[in-house]
Design a protein around this nucleic acid. Structure first.
Length: 221
DNA sequence: TGCCAGGCCGGGT
DNA sequence: ACCCGGCATGGC
């Protein structure tokens, strides 16, 4: 797969769907909380949880730090996995207090690679969550790979094997595109949009997929 | 009614 | 270094 195909894909998606205005969230802190809550979870469920946090005035580092674990899990219950996620939120906020004195701006001002590495050291933050935070909370160019990215690119045979690793696929995008946060932002959002509408697990046939015809191989049925 | 959603961890091979 | 079970709610 050539680099220019990656741009072609982006342009088709943008023409088809337009700007996606990601991330849906008012502040960098809200983006981070949302990134953890949306792990393997429908965004509409995350919105309910975030609304609960807003109503409880708990959506700031200090207030979240004060909130007890049991109360936190109740507030985020609609997001699913609420026990593990409450712990993950706590772990992150404790880490932020301990290492950055609760100063989110100081964390997000780290250079891209250092920021990603720092986030990955926190239990409960894996590659996708870390990249989402770097890109959508810090506004730095770190490409986000997710389940839709794998599915879309393997079904269309844009990647040779279905088991392409996270870092491998991420590097493929980053080495092929201009390292521009705005581009990475829109690209990932558009892939999610495409995935939701045309590349669901339950809908393996994509006869109307906007990406058909870009590469030399037919989509995998 | 079952299947799925913007993952990650921990224990076992 | 992989593989797999567990985690859980809400929408279609």
């Amino acid at each position: 797969m050539a680099k220019k195909d990656l741009l072609e894909i982006y342009q088709r998606l943008y023409k088809r769907f337009g700007p996606q205005h990601w991330w849906p969230g008012d502040t960098p802190f809200e983006v981070i909380i949302g990134a953890i809550l949306t792990q393997n979870t429908n965004w509409s469920n995350v919105e309910k949880a975030i609304n609960n946090l807003k109503k409880a005035k708990a959506l700031t580092p200090d207030k979240l730090h004060q909130t007890r674990l049991s109360e936190l899990s109740e507030l985020i219950r609609p997001a699913g996995y609420y026990n593990v996620k409450a712990k993950r939120l706590k772990t992150f906020i404790d880490w932020l207090m301990e290492n950055y004195d609760g100063d989110l701006d100081r964390l997000l001002a780290l250079p891209t690679a250092s920021l990603r590495e720092a986030l990955l050291s926190v239990r409960g933050i894996g590659p996708e969550t870390a990249d989402s935070i770097v890109l959508y909370a810090a506004g730095q160019p770190s490409f986000v790979v997710d389940a839709y990215t794998y599915r879309i690119f393997s079904r269309h045979r844009y990647v040779p094997e279905e088991d392409t690793g996270y870092d491998e696929l991420k590097a493929f995008f980053e080495d092929s595109l201009e390292k521009d946060a705005k581009l990475f932002n829109e690209y990932h959002a558009l892939l999610v949009r495409l995935g939701k509408e045309f590349c669901k697990k339950s809908k393996p046939l994509c006869a109307e997929c906007p990406l058909n015809g870009i590469n030399d191989y037919p989509p995998i049925p």
